[in-house]
């Protein structure tokens, strides 16, 4: 048993990771963030345990990269409260971007859990696996995230 060639990881997981990152950091930053994810993964790859869950490992890295991007955006003086700098996102804004800006502004764990739960329709056990936590912790993160989103979003929308 040995680690598969790195390029097969790109083929197998890039599209899905990209979707995760679009939800976490927005379409403008997603591709850069995906590149950084794979570069970090490549750096650490030879030292990885041979029986590691590769997908969960990649999601852990992607989550970390996404969290960095969101934090950077929030620190930017010109950024608005939802953490998105209007000047930095020339890409066409989706109709529901307000909702996704709210998701991005959630604490990172909750944002990731909400994306796994609703964008990928995963069960809590699997979300826990991808985030390196328990099923129970995943359920809690989703619940807390949803509660915050409901409070932010006006009922008549």
């Amino acid at each position: 048993m040995h680690l598969p060639p790195f390029e097969t990881l790109i083929d197998a997981h890039a599209t899905e990771l990209h979707r995760f990152l679009v939800a976490r950091v927005g379409p403008t930053e997603a591709e850069d963030c995906l590149q950084e994810t794979f570069m970090s993964a490549l750096r650490a790859y030879p030292r990885l345990r041979h029986d590691a869950n590769l997908r969960a490992w990649l999601y852990t890295i992607a989550h970390r990269k996404a969290t960095d991007v969101v934090r950077r955006a929030m620190r930017r003086p010109s950024s608005s409260l939802d953490g998105i700098d209007p000047a930095a996102s020339p890409a066409p804004v989706a109709a529901d971007d307000g909702l996704w800006a709210d998701v991005r502004a959630l604490p990172p764990k909750q944002a990731a859990a909400v994306v796994h739960r609703f964008v990928f329709d995963l069960a809590f056990a699997e979300i826990g696996q991808r985030m390196g936590t328990s099923e129970e912790a995943a359920r809690r993160s989703v619940h807390e995230g949803l509660t915050k989103l409901r409070r932010r979003i006006p009922h008549d929308r």
């Binding site: 890039a14 979707r19 679009v22 998701v103 994306v115 609703f118 964008v119």
Partner: peptide
Amino acid sequence: LERRLTEAPAGDLDL
């Protein structure tokens, strides 16, 4: 809210 969350933009990726 949950319904709208399932309708996330897919984003284009040139593999």
